[in-house]
Write a protein that binds this DNA or RNA. Structure first.
Lengths: 344, 344
DNA sequence: TTCACACACGCAATCGTTTGCCATAATTTG
DNA sequence: CAAATTATGGCAAACGATTGCGTGTGTGAA
């Protein structure tokens, strides 16, 4: 038999089917299945048997229609391609499944309009949303938070609960690591200017460098993609810095590849620090010194916060802000400052 | 205002609200919005205005209840962590969004039971499913395909339409590449034995080696994860082969890391070929020679096939089998066979 | 003037559940 | 043994949208 011959999608069994099979009313079946104590045990068993025979499975749409709850949560990411989100998605997925929720993945393609539109159009299709790296304005975010329960990740706004990965504090560590290696000309390789974490990292970079009497340089912006690393590497080389901190690992890895291509050795000629410690940061060449972020945990915490306010009737005394620490993981992409040309 | 104070999730506007605002019947609003030609233009504009004012957005649950169509498709992956699925998810996501469908991501955690259960429990929540690397038996797959329209990826069964990435043909190329480099002792590093593509790759490996009078060796099974690469590397080293073809890139990259740790150089002492060309295969150390698979395309094609049979009434003459070619991408992890010990 | 025929819109049933309310039967209590 | 209570299960109204059918209005032709 060819698959194409297979045209019958038989109507699935409904409560009514089970009811007539068991010889009871629909309401009794409903109760037997969702509130067993409410119906006599012998009736219940008859019903359960019938349900099993008919392979009954409740229609979640109908259920959602009454309860107003879909038991689904949307996770908005800027770009499914970015490995950063994979740890995040893994975290949310695990936690959601554990709570019996299903995850709906939405890719906003780094567009605020698409994010806004989807959030509006689909708001009835899920009980809440996790916004990872939202591109929305504070005002819009505040407005939408009235329509859909939500939690943001790496985006703090007073009107919305959030999980924040404290990369800025890590930046301080990273800068001090570079300074201790003798670097004095250090640049921040900027990500997209619409990115909220990017600005936070830049501010932390400024604070950290100034504390040590070093002038902060900013190069960019660049798209947070591996391909953009080529331009970033060229720009960094041209600027004459001896070390740089990149907005994220993707960009840093892209730089590493370009530098290798151009024959400049890392860290002998240029030290590079990334952010996030994504998949690949440990096996690239050279392995990347980076700010390790608890990304998966961030996903789990965000889900917990969201579900807490979905499931409880009272919202008082609930944690609405979480900050997760990062730490510097030193690998092989950072090293002592190179000797000045002509001097030992 | 603290987020915690924010307790009101106002009831969203319904057709009834719009109807009373516009002073018409519910049915008229419904038609004005979904079948504009059916209602007078001035009434329609009044309705549209009211809908806009009330920020009306249709309840997809209610819609699904009537139509029986949810406009959602589930994508089942064995492990969201595995970068192989990154590209796949990206492909399905793009194609689904383009068709106005939403993607529901399900992680089966490499468990056939979980896969089966979820498929059953959620079958009414989506219109169809894409099964990437299903662990189900042929019989079960056939049975379930009667309940839910589905398309498998990298899993061919006569009862279910499928998209197949032709890695086996690529294995032939890979083996010939190794043979042309002088290798005669070559092993296949096996993935999980429950994995369907793993068996196909092994069979292709056997065919390819035997064609060249080389004895096929099999090492494993190993979990298709980076961490398992350590054991695989040790085993390969111990077996005395000079080259190997790994079940997938993840395993190959793990091997690369372990070999570096043990101080054995690739490809001077051992050549390695991966499969899939996932994210990272190009920037690991050394860059991996691998079988480049059109993963994202596979996702897109699978979605197209699924939607084709969902949207059309007639299923006849529909493509129910697609094979996508792979090609060998030679990078730096393969090289000439090492000289025998003591001989030049 | 009357018949026919669009056209525009409303009525009400429907999808599959859940749940408040009520009727009956069974059990306990005084 | 009557009265009060409890256990059990059925009826019917929601939830929000779609859609077949019917009604009323207006237009043109005979």
């Amino acid at each position: 038999m060819s698959p194409a011959d297979d045209v019958s999608w038989p109507r699935a069994a409904t409560l009514a089917d089970v009811a007539s099979a068991a010889g009871v009313a629909i309401s009794t079946v409903s109760r037997a299945l969702s509130n067993p104590a409410r119906v006599n045990s012998v009736t219940r068993e008859r019903i359960e048997q019938a349900a099993r025979d008919l392979d009954y499975s409740p229609n979640s749409q109908a259920r959602a229609l009454i309860s107003g709850r879909t038991r689904a949560v949307a996770v908005f990411v800027a770009d499914v391609t970015n490995p950063f989100y994979f740890d995040l998605i893994r975290g949310t997925q695990r936690q959601l499944k554990a709570a019996g929720y299903t995850q709906v993945l939405v890719d906003t393609e780094e567009s605020d309009e698409l994010e806004d539109l989807t959030l509006q159009k689909l708001r009835r299709s899920f009980d809440g949303a996790i916004l990872a790296a939202s591109r929305l304005t504070d005002a819009r975010l505040a407005a939408l938070s009235h329509e859909v329960p939500m939690v943001t990740i790496n985006r703090q706004t007073k009107s919305v609960p959030s999980v924040f990965i404290d990369t800025p504090s890590g930046i301080l560590q990273a800068v001090e690591h570079l300074i201790s290696l003798g670097h004095r000309k250090i640049a921040y390789i900027s990500g997209p200017e619409t990115s909220w974490p990017n600005e936070g990292r830049w501010r932390a970079f400024v604070r950290a460098t100034e504390r040590h009497g070093v002038e902060p340089q900013r190069i960019g912006p660049f798209s947070p993609k591996k391909a953009a690393g080529a331009a970033a590497a060229d720009a960094a080389l041209n600027s004459g810095v001896t070390a740089c901190v990149a907005f994220n690992d993707l960009l840093a890895i892209g730089m590493l590849m370009r530098l290798r291509e151009r024959g400049v050795s890392v860290p002998e000629q240029l030290s590079i620090v990334g952010c996030d410690d994504i998949f690949g940061a440990d096996f690239c060449n050279p392995p990347l010194t980076t700010l390790t972020a608890p990304i998966e945990q961030a996903g789990r915490v965000a889900v917990s916060m969201l579900l807490a306010r979905l499931d409880s009737t009272t919202v008082s005394g609930m944690r609405d802000r979480a900050t997760l620490p990062t730490h510097l993981t030193v690998r092989a992409s950072t090293g002592p400052v190179p000797h000045e040309r002509g001097r030992p």
